[in-house]
């Protein structure tokens, strides 16, 4: 189960990389076309935007799993373990509500988006706006898992520390290692 989950998130990571690389190629390609060949590929502006949307909302799930979203942990950090658990419980309930609303809204709007088409590519906007169902459901399930862990007492100390933002600077430290190597 754990292995399957890891594989799934690795796949999401791959999608992010692919989307970003594709955006670069499309936008940079258009600059080259314009100055090199006095032409422009109209499709690229629209497609790049759609890739951007997918990257943002697929990435939102992955980063939520990694506790990477910006939060203000000043208060939570000062609480006892018990206080932190209560906050963790409540905060994840809030996230569950938000995720559910996002997914439901995207579901309700599906017909309206399915009948609106992008001006250049002619792609149905359901492909773009439908991503809300994935992201909403994704964060809902992750938050549900955390609530479950808190309630059943299965939550690890590492998870609690992460919630309180005590591992915040990992990314920055990565950057530092690169600079000073």
């Amino acid at each position: 189960m754990k292995a399957l989950q890891d594989l799934f998130y690795r796949l999401l990571g791959f999608l992010l990389v692919f989307a970003l690389a594709a955006m670069c190629v499309m936008v940079f390609g258009n600059v080259v076309l314009r100055y090199g060949f006095n032409q422009s590929l109209v499709v690229s502006e629209e497609m790049a935007r759609f890739f951007f949307v997918w990257m943002t909302f697929v990435g939102a799930v992955l980063t939520f799993r990694e506790n990477a979203h910006i939060g203000i942990e000043t208060l939570v950090q000062r609480l006892s373990r018990k206080g932190r658990l209560v906050c963790m419980f409540m905060a994840n309930i809030v996230v569950m509500v938000c995720g559910a609303v996002f997914a439901m809204g995207a579901w309700e709007q599906h017909d309206i988006n399915a009948t609106m088409f992008a001006p250049v590519t002619g792609l149905s906007l359901a492909w773009v706006y439908g991503i809300g169902m994935f992201t909403g459901a994704g964060v809902f399930l992750i938050a549900l898992g955390r609530v479950w862990d808190v309630v059943t007492g299965k939550v690890t100390e590492e998870e609690i520390a992460r919630f309180a933002g005590e591992y915040h600077n990992e990314e920055i430290m990565d950057a530092v290692r690169e600079v000073s190597k």
């Binding site: 992010l16 970003l20 690389a21 909302f57 990435g59 980063t63 979203h69 990314e171």
Partner: peptide, 17 residues
């Protein structure tokens, strides 16, 4: 590098959204 930039982007953009 791409993955890191993409992740940071989605954190910023999800906030913007």
């Amino acid at each position: 590098v791409l993955l890191k930039a993409a992740k940071t982007t989605s954190v910023v953009m999800f906030l913007v959204a």
